[in-house]
Nucleic acid binder design. Structure first.
Lengths: 380, 380
DNA sequence: TGACTTTCTGACAACGTTACCATAGTCTCC
DNA sequence: GGAGACTATGGTAACGTTGTCAGAAAGTCA
């Protein structure tokens, strides 16, 4: 409880101290007028010691069944709930996982969090979530704040840069994994990512089948939705396709995007197929309308890290490299919890086969070519 | 620390107790091998008492500036971070807010959470998030679990039913507000909602201007996105419009929706305009394509609680009653935090003017009528 | 019967922090 | 110069729980 503003006390200056410091601090006492029942009260009602009550309620052995029942009934009737903070203080694990989201407004991230939350909850962990709103600086300070809450483990989702200032927490202090991100240049952290390569390879194989030799890719730099450039260049090289990658700001609008597309489709690049990542999908579709491009008649299109829920709204629907965000979240939670509970750090990179290539009619033959479109193949 | 498996102890049975109970419980000790520095250690290094160190670090008055600096330097050099759990135990407020999400996969909810998180964070509160995955039962048990963590306040987002079992927590125990929901029949809880009425009224006024007299509404029952039926019926009645409301399951697919739409547009209802809520937007658009309906030539359409990010993907874009999720989240956080810090419960319903009516060309004259479409008006 | 084991219970000391109380020194002002 | 006020600091007892130990009672087996 905070110091009471009025204290009946023979020592005048203590009274003054209290009220003055309250005033100075601008600190208002919170009078909820409510105090949760404690284990001591439960024990008293059940007429046992607190030790026995503790054992009974946490299901540890060596408690007489009749006594245990009495304790449980007492707890029930008082509406007792263990104070997890005190338990954490004593037993030094809080059963809480911290999550720092680089940004949370996008659906792939939400799916990821949803999966993580489900796995964490079923393992008995609570989730302390903080939103870094796309700031590396804030990411670091949030990691610090979660650390103050003595989380048992930390998940950093979507950030591409953890920064040296978090290093003290990383050197064995708290298990920390990263997910939904493309790797951290500066800090060694176990990383969970999807195995996009197979899916990206399928996409380029398909483009090759359709006779495309030049592709333009539009993505935002350093975000969740950007496939690792190495994957894209390797997959395109395998098929003898030239892939020109443009990294644009997330704020790019439809008109600007139209300019970029027109430019890519003009000589000397003259791309006949376009790839776009999730972040730019909306201005991309606007640009397609502005340019009055028909898909796939005028140009073939596919998206990276697309999102299922949008499919119903895309006209025409686009072929896509999908990631299963929920499965990634679950996987990430398992890795983190295993680390927390075993004390053994997982391998630095955990690559998963959670991507797939879904093809619709948005990929067709090169305009002007006489080749028939081969049948679409999906490896979903 | 958990009991060590091997204890050198003259009392044999204690040793056995430890190892056996570990085995029975399946409880593995966590050897992180790391212990965070404590205030005592900081105080020792700065050569002051723990009291003084505590005062210095929390910025309370009556600490010599030189001493305070020395303490801060000691804390810095040890990498000290206050243990929030212990602080909460002593001071009985945890600076933590609990959030129970009824479902988190939808963007309006995410916007809401984002706003809430931002306001909570800037007020110094951490956010304990739990996902009820659309289950009333789980909502209740999560409220209980958050209560065990002694959150200072609780937000229940999106649920339509809190249930009597949460009543003990609600009767003054912990400030609890509900947001993104349509009201709780069974429990009296302060509720934050948008003032949809003005926007809905604009929608119906517009329909009236265009000569519509019969509207069919499709929504899911009991979700965030369903406007309160009273609002819709009142607004339609004001304009002399018959509004037939259908509540369909969220799993309704495009084909089924097409059937419902065809039915609504047939005699005897013969609706000339359609309204749909966010949850059913995707099957609705599919149905429109199946029925080959042209908007607004064949039928006028608007959506309730639509979501901006989808606009770019909707072809044609639809007129919509929008809610500002972020602003609602911020507002909700303010109300909750005010309650937590003042101890005074807010009024039971906080209605906000955070809705607007955005009109596009998806509303037109009644098919077959000779009336020109009046110019669109937006009250955004 | 007695040595040994197992079951059950209680007392007590932590965990890391802050609230409260005590005390001493300094400053101000009549 | 002394009453009254403020500044600065330290000691101690909580907060609510669990880990550890002590010890009593009951069961097992030679």
């Amino acid at each position: 409880m905070l110091p009471r503003a009025v204290v009946v006390c023979k020592r005048y200056h203590t009274t003054l101290f209290c009220s003055r410091s309250l005033r100075i601090l601008g600190c208002v006492p919170r009078n909820t007028g409510y105090r949760a029942p404690t284990l001591r009260e439960v024990a008293a009602r059940a007429e046992v010691s607190v030790s026995t009550a503790s054992r009974a309620l946490s299901g540890r052995p060596y408690v007489n069944e009749g006594v245990a029942t009495r304790v449980r009934e007492a707890a029930e009737s008082l509406g007792y709930h263990a104070n997890e903070g005190a338990r954490g203080l004593r037993s030094s694990h809080t059963m809480t996982l911290g999550v720092v989201c680089f940004q949370m407004r996008q659906l792939p991230m939400i799916e990821f969090l949803d999966g993580f939350a489900e796995a964490a909850e079923s393992a008995g962990y609570a989730m302390l979530v903080a939103n870094a709103r796309s700031s590396d600086e804030r990411t670091r300070s949030l990691v610090e704040r979660l650390f103050e809450r003595r989380v048992d483990g930390l998940l950093v989702a979507g950030a591409s840069d953890l920064g040296a200032s978090t290093r003290p927490y990383l050197d064995g202090a708290v298990p920390l994994v990263a997910g939904m991100s493309k790797g951290h240049a500066d800090v060694e952290v176990p990383l969970v990512m999807t195995s996009e390569f197979a899916a990206i390879r399928s996409a380029f194989a398909r483009l090759h089948e359709c006779g495309h030799t030049s592709v333009a890719y539009f993505g935002t730099s350093r975000t969740v939705h950007t496939p690792r450039p190495g994957y894209v260049s390797q997959a395109s090289a395998e098929q003898g396709i030239t892939c020109h990658m443009s990294f644009l700001p997330e704020s790019t609008d439809g008109a600007a995007m139209a300019g970029h597309i027109a430019n890519a489709m003009a000589a000397p690049n003259s791309a006949t197929a376009l790839a776009v990542n999730h972040s730019l999908l909306s201005p991309f579709m606007t640009a397609i309308r502005i340019l009055k491009l028909r898909i796939p008649d005028d140009v073939s299109v596919f998206t990276m890290s697309d999102y299922r829920q949008l499919d119903a709204f895309l006209d025409p629907p686009l072929s896509a490299v999908h990631s299963d965000g929920v499965a990634m979240g679950v996987h990430c939670a398992r890795i983190l919890i295993d680390w927390v509970e075993s004390g053994e750090a997982p391998p630095p990179v955990s690559d998963m086969n959670l991507s797939s290539w879904l093809e619709t009619r948005s990929i067709g033959p090169v305009p002007g070519s006489k080749v028939d479109t081969p049948d679409a193949v999906s490896n979903d």
